[in-house]
């Protein structure tokens, strides 16, 4: 079993500061990733922008509120709205996060960490299956940056994510920056994380910048990708081959050309690594 998605190339997140370029048709890029919730609205400018983006390049939907790991019941009205949006914009795929975000109907609007236990795994697998049933399609699940771990976890995150993908038959959106941030925060081997994933499950890669404090890294998406994350991306391409890759930049969003240059860097890295692989296997 595998995740069946296309290789779309190297894209960027659809963010408001670049809406004018999308509307005037000058936002040239391989593909866009749109935050689902920003477009789960009745009408107006967001949906106009989404239509224009679709006319320029393929679009995928990336959610932040599915709350796959929450003990709350799945939010059916959220799923209905998401399905409506999917029907409207026909994304190449749909993704969300390996996390929880609400309990008792109270939403934190954050990507909160799960303990990596068999109980949590069973729970997330069951919910991922139900979400896929409701949406009538496979989803990709992304690893999040985390700032704490639980002492009763019984497996590493990569084992949890791999098992989720196999048991729920979903894909993995591997956020290479999140792997790096969490590896520094918790002292694990980021390369071991990447090597542990089955290539056939990895449908997309995220790249982003982060911030550093005295004691930890924070996943802020407010700057360029750092060299250590580029190295990890190289390893990912070595392990998985070419995978659709997206640059996330959410705060202090730069000019369009700077953003696209980051996506072009990812393309260059991929081309270089794929070339090396071919040379080795020749």
């Amino acid at each position: 079993m595998a995740i069946d998605v296309l290789h779309l190339g190297h894209g960027v997140g659809l963010r408001t500061s670049h809406y004018p370029r999308v509307l005037d048709g000058t936002a040239s890029v391989d593909w866009f990733e749109a935050i689902s919730e920003n477009f789960m609205v009745p009408g107006g400018r967001p949906l106009t922008v989404l239509e224009h983006a679709r006319a320029l390049a393929p679009v995928v939907l990336h959610g932040v509120s599915l709350s796959l790991g929450s003990v709350d019941p799945l939010n059916e009205s959220y799923l209905r709205e998401l399905k409506t949006l999917i029907q409207r914009c026909e994304p190449s795929w749909v993704s969300d996060h390996l996390c929880w975000g609400s309990v008792g109907g109270h939403y934190a609007h954050d990507l909160l960490p799960l303990p990596f236990t068999e109980e949590a795994l069973r729970h997330v697998v069951e919910r991922a299956r139900r979400v896929q049933d409701r949406l009538g399609r496979q989803i990709l699940v992304e690893n999040v940056s985390s700032y704490l771990t639980f002492s009763h976890s019984t497996m590493p995150e990569w084992e949890f994510l791999s098992a989720l993908a196999e048991r729920a038959d979903c894909g993995i959106l591997l956020d290479v920056n999140n792997v790096y941030v969490s590896s520094v925060n918790h002292g694990f081997d980021a390369a071991a994380y990447v090597r542990a994933l089955r290539p056939a499950r990895v449908g997309q890669i995220h790249l982003a910048g982060h911030s550093e404090t005295d004691t930890r890294l924070i996943d802020t998406h407010d700057g360029p990708v750092v060299p250590a994350v580029w190295d990890l991306y190289r390893l990912a391409v070595r392990c998985f081959g070419p995978v659709s890759t997206l640059v996330e930049w959410d705060d202090h969003v730069p000019e369009w050309d700077v953003l696209c240059a980051e996506a072009e860097l990812a393309r260059a890295v991929e081309t270089e690594v794929v070339g090396e692989r071919r040379a080795r296997s020749a």
């Binding site: 909160l112 704490l148 918790h186 002292g187 004691t215 924070i218």
Partner: peptide
């Protein structure tokens, strides 16, 4: 806090505090 890992750099409370600060700042 008893089930949150701590280490020499950060106590469990420091780690949980990251989420608390982000919750309020974001909203």
């Amino acid at each position: 806090l008893r089930v949150v890992d701590g280490d020499a750099r950060q106590a469990p409370g420091d780690r949980l505090d990251v989420y608390a600060q982000m919750y309020w700042m974001r909203l």
